[in-house]
Design a protein around this nucleic acid. Structure first.
Lengths: 162, 162
DNA sequence: CAAGATTGAGTCGTCAATCTTC
DNA sequence: GAAGATTGACGACTCAATCTTG
């Protein structure tokens, strides 16, 4: 039973491990806050709704690039949102390959209730840090992401660029 | 107005999003380096091997607590490691509920080859930062984790309450 | 052929239910 | 009943293969 001699494992000092744990905490807070608000939305689903609301008629591939998710993952996420009537796929006459996405009124309504909850999650996440520390954390994180922006599995890219 | 492309979506400034992207990058680097070394190991599998090697005869629950994974997740991970003969489950006469874990010689060998690769991943992850910045990043991350240590998604509490 | 999307397979991560054992 | 583990279910994530359309 190793309790305090956890130092024997260098895992705790490894950035990869720390980042994964941060992600665990972030997800926990998101689930906790959403459940507390009686809202059934995962983090991906929320991000998708935000993006579809901001860019009506966006296609799935572009959506994936914006919120940094794999195209295949997006497909499954949209499936579930569509099943619940929160979102709709549109196939135009011009290009039948493309699935354009539209947020439904019920989706709008749910998104409206979700925004303040998501806002609270972000606040709670950095709550253990002081104001300057929060800025530092975001700046340092951004520096890492900038360096590896094109390496990510689903590279994050602004819409208007190739 | 900087970043006219991304300014429309506040997602990029959200800590939760940034942390998830960091996790994406970390996983990408891990996969890339391991593939480059011709080693078939996921990050969880590597962490499990490290812990089992450090604590022979550790049980699955304790392993989960050490490397911060859900008990059920650990079960599946050990399944795959056991299928490959890298690890072995042992059931003692004293307490037949407990699955104690032992690393096999082939697991030792693979672990030995994997350590320097994992080391390189950690270095590359923080490579975009200067020395002091790396310390700051780890310190700030640790501060967040300390505050939410008991909130982790794998609560490790029996949750039999009620 | 290239682009956009879907399907299938495999791993990860969590929860709920169940089983065995103490 | 409680502890340790397994199974089943579901969402998420990725890749490879496939299908359709341009």
């Amino acid at each position: 039973m190793p309790d305090e001699d956890t130092a024997a494992l260098p895992i705790y000092a490894m950035p990869g491990h720390v980042i994964r744990r941060l992600q665990q905490v972030a997800v926990s807070l998101f689930v906790e806050e959403m459940e507390g608000a009686g809202i059934e939305l995962t983090a991906v689903q929320f991000a998708a709704l935000v993006a579809i609301d901001a860019y009506p008629l966006i296609d799935q591939s572009t959506l994936g690039k914006i919120i940094a998710y794999d195209r295949t993952t997006i497909g499954g996420v949209i499936d579930r949102l569509e099943d619940r009537g929160l979102v709709r796929r549109v196939v135009t006459r011009e290009n039948k390959r493309i699935r354009q996405l539209i947020i439904e009124p019920s989706g709008q309504e749910l998104l409206g209730r979700s925004r303040p909850v998501a806002e609270r999650v972000q606040e709670r996440l950095l709550d253990p840090l002081t104001g300057p520390e929060r800025d530092a954390f975001m700046t340092l994180s951004g520096k890492i992401l900038d360096a590896y922006n094109d390496l990510s599995r689903a590279p994050l890219r602004p819409m208007n660029r190739r």
